[in-house]
């Protein structure tokens, strides 16, 4: 997409690698946290407080974005492994989806911060 003389894979591979680390290290904690929400609203509020306050949520959504790119990179390659002849269309769709999800996170975060300041 960007370079004709060589593969752009380093970009996606970089994101995939970072995402992989996040999934391996951070995701277990987060999943455990969400599973703990049944106890009480207070937990929810507390969880909400963490992931909705501007600074921590900025960290949180960047983790989620990295996980998104990691997951969709794997989806792209697994399609290839399942003998689907992936072309530029698949590339656009899959990585476009990743960009979309990332954008959604950022927009939500922006709105939350925007609403709160004004």
């Amino acid at each position: 997409m960007f370079r004709k003389d060589r593969s752009d894979e380093p970009i996606y591979w970089g994101l995939f690698g970072a995402g992989g680390m996040v999934v391996a290290i951070a995701l277990p904690v987060i999943i455990l946290a969400t599973m703990g929400l049944t106890h009480s609203l207070t937990d929810t509020v507390m969880f909400g407080e963490i992931i909705l306050s501007p600074l921590p949520s900025l960290v949180f959504i960047s983790l989620m974005i990295l996980c998104t790119w990691h997951a969709l990179h794997r989806v792209y390659h697994t399609l290839h492994d399942l003998n689907v002849h992936v072309g530029t269309l698949h590339h656009l769709v899959i990585y476009g989806l990743a960009a979309l999800i990332s954008l959604a996170f950022i927009v939500c975060w922006a709105i939350l911060v925007f609403k709160n300041i004004f």
Partner: peptide, 23 residues
């Protein structure tokens, strides 16, 4: 190992849902 990405994606969408709900 590669298939775990689908579940990771699902969870990420859950978290996105959480944000949208918060809005």
């Amino acid at each position: 190992r590669e298939g775990t990405c689908l579940l990771v994606l699902a969870f990420v969408l859950e978290m996105l849902g959480f944000y949208i709900a918060a809005l």
